[in-house]
Each structure stands twice: as C-alpha cells, then as structure tokens.
Design a protein around this nucleic acid. Structure first.
Length: 560
RNA sequence: GCUCUCGUAGUUCAAUGGAUAGAAUAUCGGCUUGCGGAGCCGACGAUUCAGGUUCGAAUCCUGACGAGAGCACCA
C-alpha cells in the first residue's frame, strides 16, 4: 500500500468514528513546511455539520492513530490537516527505489488492457517537418507512459500514401526528370515544384489531376506508377530511419490507400441512412448533431480523409483485439475527428465508444535561424542538427571530448523537452535561441543533473567507498530531494490517466533542480557517517531521473 | 457570421476549486582552493476587464475586450 493510500485509510477510519463520510482528496502542499500531504476534508464537511472547519479538523486529528510513517499531524490555515512523513519513511523509500530501479515508477493500474496508439503518421512524399516532431514526441511519450501502467500498447502509424499532394510530387519528379536518380531531398523539392505549378499552370493542373486518378485507381505500368512506387519506398525508409533515431518503433503500419477502399465501401453501404447524396458527393449531415456537414466521398468517387478515417476504424477493429484506440493528431483536426467520431457512432457505436482522439498544439518558431533546405517549413533533421552543433560546441568550451552520439542525445532532449513541457493541446513556442543555450528549464538541464549523479557515484566507486544496503541518515535532515522522490509513481499515474506527458517533464525539472540545490549545499563524499545515505539518495535520484526521461523518450547520458 | 480553443512577470511555461500564484529566461548583484559552473544563492517583476457562484476562484458561470483554429469535395 502506498503512503497515499495509508493516509486516506486513516482519515476514513477517523471520519467513521465521528459518524462522518466524504471524498478524501490528498494533495502535496506547495510549501514543504506545511508538510508532505494535506487534506481539506474538514473544510468540505464544515458546512453540512455546522461546525467550524478548524474545530472539525481538530476532532478528526484527535481520532487519528499513531503511525510509524507519520511524525506529525497538525491543523493549519483555514482548516487543512497537514501530515509530515517520518525520516524513517524516507529511508525505506530511498532503499526501495534503488532495489527496484528497473520497475520504479511502473505500476499495475491497467494490467489486462490493450491499447492501440496511432501517432507520427507521415505524409509520404512530403518532408518530416517540425509538426511531425511534436506528434512523435508526444505520441511516443504516451506509448511509454501507458506501458508504465502495465497496459499492452501497440504503436501504429497511418502513412498517407494517396492524396492529391502525392500526385503533385510525382508530377514534379517526372517534370524534373529525376525518375532514375531519386533521393528523399529531391522528392521534397519535386513536391514544392508540383504545388507551385499546379496553381500556376492550367495544363499542369489537368495532368496532375489525371495522375491523381490513376494513382487512386492503382493503374500499374505507367511511368507515374513507377515513380510512385520508388518514391513510396524511399519515403517509408526515411520515415523508419528518422522515427527510430527519435526512439520510436511501430508494431504495424496501416496505409491510407487501404483505409480509403474500406471507407468507401462502408460509406456506400450506409447511403442512404447515415450518409446522403448531395451535389454528386456523399456527405454526412454533421449539422444535425451540432457539428457541420462535410463530404465523405467526393463527386469524383474518391473517399476524402473522413471516409478514410472511417475505413481506418474498420481496419483496426477487424484486424486487432483491443480495449481502447487512441489517435494523436494536430489540434487543427479537432473538429474533423468530432465528425468522424459522430459518424462512426451512427455506423457502429463500439467504434466511437472505444476510440479517443486527442490533439496536441502546433509548434511555432520565434526566431528563424535554422537553415532549411525545403521552403519555409523547418525539417526535423535540420532542427536536430542545429542544436546538436551547439551541444558539440559546448563540449569543446568545457574541454570535454566531443562526442557526436551524446551531442545528438542532448539535441533530441532539448527539442523533446521543449515540446513535452507544455500541456497537451496548447500551442508550443519553440525559441531556437533558448533551445541552443541548453540552460534553464530544458532537457539538457535534467540530463546534466543525471550526469552529475553518475559522476558522484563513479567517484565514490573509484575511491573504494563500499555500497551500503539499507543506509540510514545518521542525523542528516530530510531533504527536498527525498520529499520529491517518493511522489514519482503518482506523477506517472496522473500523466497516464490524463494523457499528459507534461506532468513528467515538470516533475523531472523540479527534481533536477532540488538535486542541484542539495548538491551545492551538501558535500556528498565527505567520509562522514551520513555519506552512505547521501550516496543512496544520489542513486535514487539518478534512477528516478533516468526512468522519467525514458518516459519522455529522452536518453540519459552518463557524461555530457 | 456560426462553432470551438485560449488570455498569468518584458518573454516562454507551471499551478487536483485551496494556504504567501511557482519556475525558466532576460536585467541587476553575489558564489564554496570541494564530488562536473550546461550549476548554486539573491533582487526585480504577473492572473485582460466587469459582474456572479463558493468557506475559498487564475481555475466554475455570464458579459465585454483581445488572440488563434475549424466551418463541402486538400489532409
């Protein structure tokens, strides 16, 4: 039983003695001098019992039995009941973290739950840009956070492999005569070329539309089909390479072309009924459900992305057995997915009930000092490279060996942390200057605290300091570091329940800060009686930082 | 126009309806012959406005003002 549950139970029993009941909410006071846990139950019950909150709080406290993990309980402010945990509790906790390092922070809230989690869906033939970086960071983090609750998570991605945009890129490749010497960079350029010419030249527009039709119809043997196949393969290989560099892997890919066929079939089966004809297209009357009308199958007979998403649901439900399906997309698609969910509900209610569509914000750059190869949209690769160069430079300034791999880990940490630190759904402002500084509330700051912990532990080992199993504090005061460490599993649980990785990021930053402050004031290797316990706290901190960073998809290097 | 988000220090973000609204950055001033200064300590500085609900509101409700997104054959 966690200390949280223990205290909740003690209060419940005390309330029973007083013939009272109520929902018990415990929180950690912002100010640690107020204690480790605080309960507002007396203020909640004051009105209905006609007693003053403070008097009621005193009465509840009088009923609380003595417990070895709690040293003090007192009433404060308007009627809070504050609990102070005992030094011995923190000692047990410190030992526990190191003994269970690999599982620390994982729990078993969702043991028999299978979750499909769709994220990082690329547009083949288009570059992997800054927006994909946001989606990948948050998607991958949620995969890891949900796994930490004991759930079986299957990461999926849904590449867009048919769309008018792809026809534009294919036309661009042919127009540039790059068919036999295609590269990923050229595909990006060809796409930009196609987009520009489509609007500028009526003949080109007609040609691209024709290519689009033939690709939708999978007409093999044509020059465009050859280009399409080559480009598709290249794009997929690139997608796999970049997502694996970012720490992601996928159990399966479901292609938009498959979903389009399925979706079209299902929409047709439900027309009329769920859907209806209008101006030669098949639409869904979202306006009857408080949403808006939109086209599922266009007048040319192709499924739009709405029909594709219906088809995707059908594929998921027919191919896999699961309890929940989560799709992570950009905030701009919020209303789109409300429409998909509503249409799905009309077709098969289970599809809607088991599906969650969650959105993340958009990323904007404040200062544009990134050298971008393709147009105005910064590519993921270019951003990582810019930050990585700065990290290498910093290594040289600090007279450390320049290590490309670690510099890349630092760069990815800086970027992922900047994304993960803000609440889901809020827009993210990415300040390149700030990211390059690698200081303050950043991923590298957390990595640095970890590297410091490891450095201390290495030095201790070099000096031959023996590790002590259940070290005790020997007079050392309880530190803020300890007061934060035991809360880590609660933070993970909350992040999982609310699909909010930013709780993890904020917690890690607070923990790293508490450790750095403690480190500056307390010499760890001082040959005192308390040295063993201080090393144990350092080890527990390293474990927690490393496990937490892992949930954000960030590496924790030993040196930096 | 309709629908939906969102307004917190100069800037970028936090804050289960709780106690003195926390950080980072910027600016200014300090720091240990010490285990890593990508660090530590301090100063300055904020809830858009007006009502309402509540023992208690940045948070919930109403309105005003301001910003963004979506709204028929792109995804």
């Amino acid at each position: 039983m966690t200390i949280h549950d223990t205290i909740t139970q003690l209060i419940t029993q005390a309330l029973q003695q007083l013939q009272l009941s109520g929902e018990i909410v415990l929180e950690h006071p912002a100010d640690t001098t107020h204690g480790d846990f605080s309960c507002n139950i007396a203020m909640m019950l004051a009105k209905s019992t006609g007693r003053s909150p403070r008097e009621l709080a005193e009465a509840i406290v009088a009923q609380l039995p003595v417990h070895e993990d709690i040293t003090a309980v007192n009433v404060a402010g308007p009627g809070f009941i504050n609990f102070q945990l005992s030094p011995a509790f923190f000692e047990k906790q410190t030992a526990h973290i190191s003994e269970h390092a690999t599982t620390w922070g994982t729990h078993t809230e969702l043991p028999d739950t299978t979750i499909l989690l769709e994220h990082s869906s690329p547009n083949l033939f288009k570059p992997f840009h800054i927006g994909h970086l946001v989606n990948n960071t948050l998607g991958e983090s949620l995969v890891r956070i949900l796994r930490a609750t004991g759930a079986t998570v299957m990461p999926l991605s849904y590449p867009s492999d048919v769309s008018p945009g792809i026809a534009k890129a294919v036309w661009g490749v042919i127009d540039k005569r790059w068919e036999s010497d295609l590269t990923i960079a050229r595909i990006g350029e060809a796409y930009a070329h196609g987009v520009a010419q489509y609007d500028a030249d009526e003949a080109v527009k007609k040609r691209i539309d024709a290519i689009n039709t033939s690709l939708y119809n999978e007409e093999a043997g044509t020059p465009e089909w050859e280009v399409y196949q080559t480009g598709r393969k290249l794009s997929l290989a690139y997608f796999t390479a970049i997502t694996s560099m970012l720490g992601s892997s996928f159990d399966a890919l479901i292609f938009e072309s498959e979903a389009e066929k399925e979706g079209k079939k299902i929409v047709a089966e439900h027309t009329p009924g769920v859907f209806e004809m209008s101006d030669g297209a098949i639409i869904f009357r979202g306006s009857e459900h408080g949403l808006f009308d939109n086209v599922f199958i266009n007048s040319a007979g192709f499924g739009t992305y709405l029909a594709k998403d219906i088809g995707l649901l059908d594929i998921k439900f027919s191919r896999y057995t699961f309890d929940r399906s989560i799709t992570i997309t950009d905030i701009e698609q919020k209303q789109h997915f409300q429409l998909v969910k509503k249409a799905a509900e009309c077709i098969t209610p289970e599809w809607s009930e088991k599906s969650s569509f969650i959105q993340h914000g958009r990323l904007q750059l404040t200062s544009g000092k990134i050298s971008s190869r393709a147009g105005n949209v910064p590519l993921a690769e270019d951003i990582i490279k810019s930050v990585q160069d700065r990290a290498l430079q910093r290594m040289q300034e600090n007279e450390r060996a320049a290590d490309e791999t670690i510099a890349q880990q630092i760069a990815i940490a800086a970027i992922k942390y900047a994304i993960a630190r803000v609440g889901m759904g809020k827009n993210i402002v990415f300040d390149m200057e700030q990211a390059l500084s690698l200081e303050g509330d950043t991923g590298p700051y957390v990595q640095y605290a970890y590297a410091r912990c490891r450095s201390v532990l290495r030095t201790a080992a070099e000096r031959g300091v023996a590790t002590v199993q259940n070290a005790v504090r020997e007079g050392l005061a309880v530190s803020d570091v300890e007061r934060l460490l035991y809360r880590y599993p609660e933070v993970v649980a909350r992040a999982a329940n609310e699909y909010e990785p930013h709780y993890i990021a904020n917690y890690l930053s607070t923990l790293a800060s508490a450790f750095n402050s403690w480190y500056a004031h307390e010499q760890i290797l001082d040959d005192s009686a308390a040295q063993a316990y201080k090393l144990a706290v350092t080890h527990a901190t390293a474990t927690t930082l490393s496990n937490g960073l892992n949930l954000l998809g960030i590496e924790a290097p030993e040196y930096m």
